[in-house]
């Protein structure tokens, strides 16, 4: 296992592998999102209750899934970094933070926009929504740490530990808000308004999710490539200075 990682932990070798994947996933992201949008906006039927507003779901749900997945990814790569100390894992974790922020933000915004026509309010202090907002703030905190300690190896551990602690904390937060909610708010609106999802809706939903997943990989690999090249550029500049 470790040996297998070792092979790709070398940034240069990683780039060699990553660039084709980047290209493929970029193209795949474009086409899946394009087709998914066609399905979602034109071909799929409107909901009998929510009418056309249900189409917000095709943005909202995949981006919510993706933001959770991004946090899981950051968490796992931080753990790997702390165990095996390969800087590559840290670069992967760090570079996925802005993507996570964007996904979470779009999930929150689209959720609010969706909530107004269906439930009559933009925001409810529901467990899921609240913990998502907190996830957003944790993402922002990670970004803050990432930026303040940029170009110093000192921030590496700071970042990894913070994402670790945040990862443990998220379920606790979810749990606590849930607890707080069940005690003090009679059955929340979201649960009563369950949407029955038909196959015609499921297909564009999964297409969009797949598209966003490819998009995530594409953006991640682009920023990792930039990061690695930047670092080698700095090393190159320093070696010029010394000679």
């Amino acid at each position: 296992m470790i040996k297998y990682f070792h092979k790709f932990a070398n940034p240069v070798r990683f780039l060699k592998l990553a660039i084709p994947i980047k290209k493929i996933s970029g193209i795949a992201a474009f086409f899946t999102i394009f087709i998914g949008l066609i399905f979602a906006l034109l071909l799929s039927p409107p909901d009998y209750q929510q009418k056309e507003t249900v189409r917000i779901m095709y943005i909202h749900v995949p981006s919510a899934w993706m933001s959770l997945m991004t946090y899981g990814f950051i968490f796992l790569s931080s753990v790997f970094f702390l165990i095996w100390r390969f800087p590559l894992f840290l670069i992967l974790a760090k570079e996925s933070v802005p993507i996570g922020i964007i996904f979470t933000f779009s999930a929150l915004i689209s959720g609010a926009l969706w909530g107004k026509p269906t439930w009559g309010t933009y925001w409810v202090w529901d467990a899921r929504l609240t913990s998502f907002l907190i996830l957003f703030f944790i993402f922002l905190g990670l970004k803050l740490i990432k930026d303040t300690f940029s170009n110093s190896s000192k921030g590496n551990y700071t970042f990894a530990y913070l994402s670790l602690v945040g990862g443990f904390n998220l379920p606790i937060i979810k749990f606590s808000v849930d607890w707080w909610n069940t005690l003090h708010q009679p059955a929340s609106i979201i649960r009563t308004g369950g949407i029955s999802v038909s196959n015609e809706m499921l297909a564009p939903l999964f297409l969009m999710a797949l598209g966003l997943f490819f998009l995530f990989i594409y953006i991640l690999l682009v920023s990792v490539e930039i990061n690695i090249k930047e670092k080698s550029l700095i090393n190159f500049r320093d070696s010029l200075k010394n000679n």
Partner: peptide, 17 residues
């Protein structure tokens, strides 16, 4: 500022309970 920003999310469960 960073300290405030990072700490408050982690304090939330405690204050709720």
């Amino acid at each position: 500022p960073i300290l405030v920003f990072l700490t408050i999310p982690f304090f939330l469960p405690i204050i709720i309970f």
